[in-house]
Amino acid sequence: MIEIVGLTKKYGSFYALQDLNLTIEEGTVFGFVGANGAGKSTTFSILATLLQPTAGDAFINGMSVTKNAHEVRKQIGYMPDFFGVYDQLKANEYLDFYGASYGIAPKEREVLIPKLLELVNLSHKRYDYVDLLSRGMKQRLCLARALIHDPKILILDEPASGLDPRARVEMRDILKELKSMGKTILISSHILPELAEMCDSIGVIDSGQLIAQGSVHEIQAHLQSEKVLKVKLAGPTQEAMAFFENDPLVSKLIEKPEKQSIEFLYRGTEEDQIRLLRQAMEQSLQILSFAEEETDLEDVFMAITKGVEVK
């Protein structure tokens, strides 16, 4: 379990993180979304005991990352957003070194390393020098490294960045496998759809503050005060246009006569929406369908990050 309590990080007078509170239950995959500079890596660095918070604290399985850092390190597997590898080391030696760093006995390492390489599909690169591996392979190797001491909690900072679509899918499959192994995974990305697929829960961070938290659907609902409604009619659209135009919660009405449909932005709650439909039926409008247009997560993300630019 990860508990973040009032976490604050200041650089000079600039707040990189401001009073962040978050609890992540054991066994969940939690996605951390935010635009560039929102504070994702800052949060992860603090959790990984690399950065000292200005105020607040975080607890990994009840242990403070500031006061009990050494114990916390044994519990987490951390993958930074940017990292390097030692040249002149082969993939298996690379893992062996980190295995030793966690005090794993040489005999155990010998058994463990092929298994980990297998997990991340790098068995064929076992005796290759790590600095000669491709970016995606390095990323997977780094993930294997983060797993070497069998941590309960994984903290992965943009593990899929810089990967081609195929490698992204592979990475996602590996993460799914880890999830099925019961690990608690904290993962960041600025690509919401990518996270949506594998996360149980998502937190949206903006300017160092958590602005939304919940399941993917909840987030979508929370962030969208306006939705797009599409009404399909069995006859001409003029009458319906006149009706919807009069509703104070409707804006940006678009008429599409050739498709016999109209679209508009709606600003009301679900109850408002039900009332609107009932009124429309009472007006005897020839409505075939009345539905919410699926907006994709990209749009949601754009909506969130628009706020950042305005500030």
Partner: peptide
């Protein structure tokens, strides 16, 4: 500079 230090520092070594 090679960005290997952050990983090294998150291991269980003192």
């Amino acid at each position: 500079e090679k960005q290997t230090l952050n990983i090294l520092l998150t291991t269980a070594q003192t």
